[in-house]
Design a protein around this nucleic acid. Structure first.
Length: 947
RNA sequence: GCCGGGAUGGUGGAAUUGGUAGACACGCUGGACUUAAAAUCCAGUGGGAGUUAAAUCCCGUGCGGGUUCAAGUCCCGCUCCCGGCACCA
């Protein structure tokens, strides 16, 4: 304890790195069982030539702190590092430099590894894996064969996303939107579409389970939602429509079978197989032209929603099975080929897209669902009403009434008398209520149902209201009856003002219909104009219609997904070869499992040509003929690297196993992953694929769980000091190794955690780092204060509070607040005369997961011979972790007026006695009546006073 | 357009889930040490009024309303920022 040397991380950190490696303290514990294990998984990195920056290390530091904490809590931790080593950047670099990608990749891995070692990450390096090594990709290929044998891998000629720069196919998940353009996520090149025969994995077969099982996982809720939306499950019905004068039927999918009576036309996607067959002679020319044009359009042009919809009539008609009417069949590119059946029944009244189209091409719009406002009650009184839309020509203002009692604005609304004509009722009501003489012109759309309490009549109402358009006949009103005058005034206001001021939404629908024409109502409501289904609510009608369809044998309930099958073949070199061979007739055969791995050859010209480079590898193809016979050849595409990373967390469990991807014992012991930390950008890619792989393994009987990641969290981005994303382009990249050089690994670790909540994006601050450096300097200085045990209670209270708080914060990953508390403790400890040695030891233990180097050094200085990282997390005494005295806020009418120091757990009466003694409080209470006193134990007392 | 998430001092961020807003840190100001600087240490630091100094008071969590003894936190209506999806029938 005599060393007065300054805190110098450079003098201590390399020493401990060496020692820890020698003693192997971070090896995976041999005595782990399924019950006491804790599998912590930092998302594996792609080793790029530029090395790690501090944004990458956040994830490793976060996981490492947690791993160290869990070890101290007695859990048997598995924490391993691996490399997602195949992929385009390395290959592109190889093309540029003409150096084999393996060489640069291995170099990058060495660099990453040394960076990670320097920050003190406690991995079991004996289990390190790299996806580019044959003993790894052998099993990636094995997974492919497993899928193939389960019927989950297949070839299909389909429109694919093609990156002209990377010269390869991309999965849907690898195409990102940038300023309204679909671009390659790697290189930002706009994606092209072309037809190609490709390998696909049938992830859609698992869509339902992938969606449903999201209920089982503890993931951020927005992540769950995003994945669920991506899978895009929707329930509905498949319905077959007969085509007039044809033996063909037209299959459609709809989520709203309850609107079938409103289906007034049908639409096929231009690519639909029936287009040619049903188009009439007269329409042929137009249709063919439209189909040709659609082919030429890019995906972006087709899906540009700001553009008006286009389409052509085929000349053919289908029969709406509900109305039994003939309805025209159109072709339009607003219907997507690859969703549902590529054809729809159009219900313009209840679907915005169909409405836009119907208005443009003057197709029939038939309302079959009316909106319902408010909640039904048993004791309500039913009434049919009209509401009046009257616009005066002179200034364009519309007629409204102002309800005096509640200052409400509404149109004229009035009941229809028995036997009375609707339009006549409208004319009468306007005249009675406002004195204006009008002539009813027509109804505006269908009725609107509402349920409400009619204030002026004191009853609950069930109202069915029909908006009616009227024409003003005379500018001057006649006198209205006195009773009406008391209730309301007639006022004229601009339509805009009316729409804004009108008190209830259901009452502006009439005017909106008048101003903007028919409007879509796409919500659920009450079914009307639908024969036997009239009066049902949408939810009920959906069921009833499906049942009716099933009885008639023309439809059934059906679930559809947005998720597409996963395209996994890539026309590039640096990936796992697809383990398939073709016989001379071109038939596919899987490579025998015993012949795995299909090794990636070295004699390859990896310049991308659009053809897979493996096509030109002599050794790759020669081997095949030797093995299978003349004319046989290998599949030359390689696998999407996401296949490699979909199962890496299984390989960590048993990385040297050459018989299985992992042994059943290892799988049983370690899985599922207890804590997975990774970026939010992988939600609809990697995370989904990994879940898919796991479910396939489960179905094949290899594992007994079907979700790989129990708990998943995201780290946020660390931005450059300029607030921009760290990138070479901006020159704002901070290299962790530089920070370690100048301030030490402990400082880097703690600063990254202190910046803010783990999942937030936050900018780096070079100055901010110094705060942590100072803190560690103070910790270093504290050792000179340490003396023999000193039974001073404050120190005991402080350390117990600290152990409790830091322990809690670590469980919730609130690293930033845990560090703040440690700073408070150190600030406090600096002012004590002598620091109790036991308190000091406990403090070092609490700090150890965050700052493994300095704590190890100080621990050894205390004369300990074994590592602090093998110690147990200190236990705190709940009693000691409580303050003996608390500050109680005294408020008068909610405003803070004084503070009282009181013993903890004081009763209200005791606090009141002290409060009343306060002059400040007396000032505010003098001459006032105390109406109420609110007391919150150990927090505040609030006097509510009146005059 | 739709769906998420967010907005708190000069800055990063705290706030026991309705109970003293601004913990902790950065920065800044002043001081100590020094020939000087760096480093370190001490004090101050939301805004305003007030005073020699204090005491003291008022205002303050994107904006406008509301509920409550009490609102950063709950409710209603906006604005802006970030992320995702985007004709999914």
């Amino acid at each position: 304890m005599d060393s007065k040397a300054q805190y110098d991380p450079k003098a201590i950190e390399p020493k401990w790195i060496k020692k820890w490696a020698e003693t192997g303290i971070y090896k995976t514990p041999e005595d782990a069982t399924h019950e006491n294990k804790y599998y912590i998984l930092p998302q594996l990195p792609y080793p790029s030539g530029s090395g790690l920056h501090v944004g990458h290390t956040e994830i490793y530091v976060g996981c490492d702190i947690l791993a160290r904490f869990k070890r101290m809590k007695g859990e048997k931790v598995l924490q391993v590092m691996g490399w997602d080593a195949f992929g385009l950047p390395a290959e592109n670099y190889a093309v540029k430099t003409n150096i084999h990608p393996r060489i640069n990749t291995d170099k990058a891995i060495e660099n990453y590894k040394s960076q990670l070692v320097k920050i003190g990450a406690s991995y079991d390096w004996d289990r390190e894996v790299g996806s580019h090594n044959p003993d790894y990709y052998k099993w990636t290929q094995w997974f492919f064969l497993l899928m193939y044998n389960q019927g989950l891998a297949y070839r299909k000629n389909q429109k694919v996303n093609w990156c002209p720069s990377c010269k390869t196919v991309l999965a849907n998940e690898q195409v990102v939107d940038k300023d309204g353009q679909e671009v390659c996520e790697r290189c930002d090149t706009p994606v092209e579409h072309k037809m190609m025969e490709q390998w696909y994995l049938k992830i859609t077969e698992y869509a339902d389970r992938l969606a449903k099982d999201l209920d089982k996982v503890d993931w951020p809720k927005e992540t769950v939602k995003r994945q669920r939306d991506w899978i895009g499950r929707s329930e509905g019905a498949q319905i077959r429509f007969e085509i007039v004068d044809s033996d063909k039927t037209l299959k459609v999918f709809t989520t709203r079978p309850d609107t079938i009576f409103g289906a007034t036309y049908m639409v096929l996607a231009p690519e639909h197989e029936l287009v040619k067959q049903i188009t009439t002679e007269e329409q042929k020319g137009e249709v063919e032209k439209y189909v040709e044009d659609a082919k030429k359009k890019t995906e972006i042009e087709r899906t540009d929603m700001t553009k008006s919809k286009s389409g052509v009539f085929t000349g053919a008609y289908a029969i709406n099975p509900a109305t039994e009417k003939n309805i025209p069949i159109w072709i339009a590119d607003y219907v997507l080929t690859d969703y549902g059946t590529g054809a729809i029944m159009a219900v313009p009244a209840h679907d915005q897209r169909d409405m836009d189209f119907a208005k443009k091409y003057k197709l029939e719009i038939k309302e079959v669902v009316i909106p319902i406002f408010g909640k039904e009650r048993k004791d309500e009184e039913f009434r049919k009403t009209i509401s009046a839309v009257v616009q005066r020509e002179s200034d364009g203002k519309v007629l409204a009434v102002n309800w005096k009692k509640n200052n409400w604005v509404s149109p004229v609304i009035g009941g229809i008398d028995d036997e009375e004509d609707l339009l006549a009722a409208a004319e009468r009501e306007v005249l009675e209520e406002t004195g204006y003489k009008c002539k009813a012109v027509k109804t505006l759309g269908g009725e609107i149902e509402s349920h409400f309490f009619a204030d002026h009549k004191n009853v609950y109402r069930h109202r069915l209201n029909q908006p009616v358009l009227l024409e003003l006949l005379e500018d001057e009103p006649i006198d209205v009856n006195e009773d009406e005058k008391d209730i309301q005034d007639a006022v004229w206001m601009s339509p805009e003002e009316f729409l804004k001021k009108c008190s209830h939404e259901e009452n502006i629908i009439g005017l909106r219909r008048y101003l903007y024409g028919a409007e879509t109502f796409s919500g659920y409501g009450r079914v009307v104009n639908s024969g036997q289904f009239d009066g049902l609510k949408s939810e009920e009608a959906k069921e009833a219609v499906v049942k009716w369809l099933e009885e008639k044998g023309i439809g059934e309930a059906k679930v559809t997904y947005k998720l597409r099958d996963w395209s996994v073949s890539r026309q590039r070199f640096w990936g796992a070869p697809i383990p398939m061979v073709y016989d001379p007739e071109g038939n596919l055969h899987p490579v025998d499992e015993k012949d795995l791995p299909v090794v990636l050859p070295d004699d390859v010209d990896f310049k991308p040509t659009g053809q897979s480079p493996l096509t030109y590898s002599k050794s790759f193809q020669e081997g095949v003929e030797e093995k299978y016979g003349k004319g046989w050849r290998r599949e030359v595409d390689t696998l999407d690297t996401f296949m490699c990373s979909s199962w890496y967390y299984y390989r960590y469990l048993d990385p040297k196993n050459d018989k299985q991807f992992a042994s059943p014992e290892a799988l049983k012991k370690w899985m599922p992953v207890d804590f997975y930390l990774g970026g939010p950008e992988h939600v609809n890619g990697h995370l989904l694929y990994s879940r898919f792989f796991t479910k396939v393994l489960y179905d094949a009987g290899y594992i007994d769980f079907d979700e790989p990641f129990k708990v998943h969290r995201h780290q946020g981005l660390i931005l450059g000091e300029d607030g921009r994303k760290m990138s070479k382009r901006w020159g704002n990249v901070i290299n962790p190794t530089d920070v370690v050089e100048s301030h030490g690994a402990d400082t880097l670790r703690m600063y990254e955690m202190f910046m803010g909540p783990l999942s937030d994006d936050k900018p780096w601050s070079t100055k901010g780092v110094l705060g942590i450096k100072r803190f560690l300097g103070k910790v270093w200085g504290l050792k000179d204060k340490v003396g023999e045990e000193k039974p001073e209670t404050t120190q005991q209270v402080e350390i117990n509070k600290l152990i409790k708080k830091v322990g809690q914060d670590l469980e919730t990953l609130s690293f930033n607040t845990a560090i703040a508390k440690m700073m408070e403790f150190v600030n406090y400890a600096q002012n004590v005369e002598q620091l109790d040695q036991k308190v000091w030891e406990k403090f070092l233990l609490v700090l150890a997961p965050f700052a493994p180097f300095i704590t190890e050094e100080l621990w050894q200085e205390l004369g300990n011979e074994t590592s602090i990282h093998l110690e147990k997390w200190p236990v705190y005494d709940e009693n000691m972790a409580k303050d003996k005295m608390v500050t109680i806020a005294v408020q008068v009418n909610g405003k803070l007026r004084d503070n009282l120091e009181m013993p903890a757990e004081s009763e209200q009466s005791e606090v009141e006695i002290e409060a009343k003694k306060s002059e400040k409080i007396g000032k505010y209470l003098a001459g006032k009546a105390i109406i109420r006193v609110i007391y919150v134990k150990d927090r505040l007392i609030n006097y509510v006073v009146g005059e």
